[in-house]
Design a protein around this nucleic acid. Sequence first.
DNA 1: CGGTGTGCTGCTATTTCGGCATCACCCCGC
DNA 2: GCGGGGTGATGCCGAAATAGCAGCACACCG
Lengths: 314, 314
Amino acid sequence: MHAAVLRYFDHVARHGSIRKAADALSVASSAVNRQILRLEDEMGVTLFERGRSGVRPTAAGELLLRHVRETQNEYQRTRAEIASLGGTVSGDVRIISLESMLVRFLPQVVDEMSARHPKVTFTVLAVHPSEIGEALRSGDNDFGVLFVDARHRGVDVIAEFPTSVGALMRPDHPLAGRKSLTLTECVGHPVVMLQDRWLLDAIMAMEFAGSGARLSPRVVSNSIEFMRQVIRSGLGIGFFTPIGFIDEIRRGELVHVPLVEPGLAQSRIGILVPRYRRLSPPARLMINHISERLGAFADFLAAPPRRPKRRGRT
Amino acid sequence: MHAAVLRYFDHVARHGSIRKAADALSVASSAVNRQILRLEDEMGVTLFERGRSGVRPTAAGELLLRHVRETQNEYQRTRAEIASLGGTVSGDVRIISLESMLVRFLPQVVDEMSARHPKVTFTVLAVHPSEIGEALRSGDNDFGVLFVDARHRGVDVIAEFPTSVGALMRPDHPLAGRKSLTLTECVGHPVVMLQDRWLLDAIMAMEFAGSGARLSPRVVSNSIEFMRQVIRSGLGIGFFTPIGFIDEIRRGELVHVPLVEPGLAQSRIGILVPRYRRLSPPARLMINHISERLGAFADFLAAPPRRPKRRGRT
DNA sequence: CGGTGTGCTGCTATTTCGGCATCACCCCGC
DNA sequence: GCGGGGTGATGCCGAAATAGCAGCACACCG
């Protein structure tokens, strides 16, 4: 429905090059070039600065770019809404997430949603904490499953759940019997650490650094899967939210002891949506589903993991 | 830049007929028809119900229509924003207004703005009070200069000014010397009245009706210009905000005595914008200018003509 | 100095689009 | 019943917009 020049313009801006954009679009570069020139003529201003190694949007180009991308996003959302009139929910749901949610939680939720609504597609991306703000505001994503951070602006938290960040260890670890722990109590026990600023949010990094606790990292990695194996081998304690390890905890292979550090106790995982963004029907369904599943986990964690009795939902 | 089918689709919905829309667009009806058919094929749903006497949007059509119109509005706003980068402000400012503002106030403001920014065009419409909500929410208009009414939802009041609704009369009228009046004090004096629900807002109609004051209307009309002449002839008292008669008041040809009826004292004229609407640069300028001029009038009315004082406002 | 990258531009083929005439249908008034 | 005027849909054809190909001019780099 929308003119091809919208896609061309968007791609050129993304690739920073007319030829690369044309390549990605599978059209001749001359076609893309002429559309851009015609567009500039229509607008009466230059939209790209021509450099020796490509093009870069001018101020006017940025403005028009915002309009073009918003139009494309709204078009997709409108199509999904129209399709949902016929009873079948369809469209693409775009989620940005904490890495820890990508390990167990979101795959399961996506699987369930996908079975229930076969025509819905999913795009789930892990984002670097520094890019969260831009990723939410750009309009490219529907919502995020992230740590709630008051520093985010222009973002609404439409559901949040307490997460007990805690020490993850084998059941035969000396500290495994404790009901709760402080970081200082962990001093002396070997720990496994995450790579800086990734996986765990910057808030937690600050808390760990500011607590004054001297933890001796035996293993450092940025792979949660690697960490999982390391902790199961008994090489040390890991500090995580339990969500990525829910299966091991249920099976009794790992024990999660909540930390009672004052700052960490308030950690919350929330569903964050860009303010003023209209959500597509599948996005709304997905949010409902994630909320439900997160609530179930919160219930499970509130009840002692000794007895793996099922709380409520299926 | 945008595909022609957007305009076609919008016009067809507005006119309720493909042929009429094609006529308004100055294209053959077959062209418009084919574009609509192609659009429906692309969407996979019927967008119009074909009736005996034209077409009517289906639910899916309404959804797409909203997207199309929003896209067109945002495009105009974006163009104005790009144009303002070059220093010259341009674009169309769409205002809905009280009729009383159209008589003296807005023409003057438009004239001043038009002189300062020659490339800005203006669309100023008087709207029936019952249509204010829709007119603001439809996205077709930038803002309204209207009585502030708490019943409006989804609308932000970004500036408001007290208006002293009062009795308008010749200087030689028996009541002309008063500092203030109540409606009951006007009983016995002939008055000229406005036609119901028009010009004066519904609030005021309620107030007039509920005050129990029995006023004898000698002349009833819906034309402010006609009222102006009638009052100047001394046929009676009129009840208006002074804005439409500011020239006569300044020249001493008419006197405006504020009413102290409890409900009426709180009347305010405000600049109302649809919530979440991004304003184009000329619209912002126009709002600033109107605010300034309204503030000047408020000052003029607060202090007798001999001593004009300024209240801070830019 | 050629090699590779960039954006731009004639030329030509193809696709799309618009205009005209026409058809089929429906409703209303005579 | 029967035109007349209204509607949207279609076939045909010319015009306009678009895309593809090849090539140009320029800038960088080793």
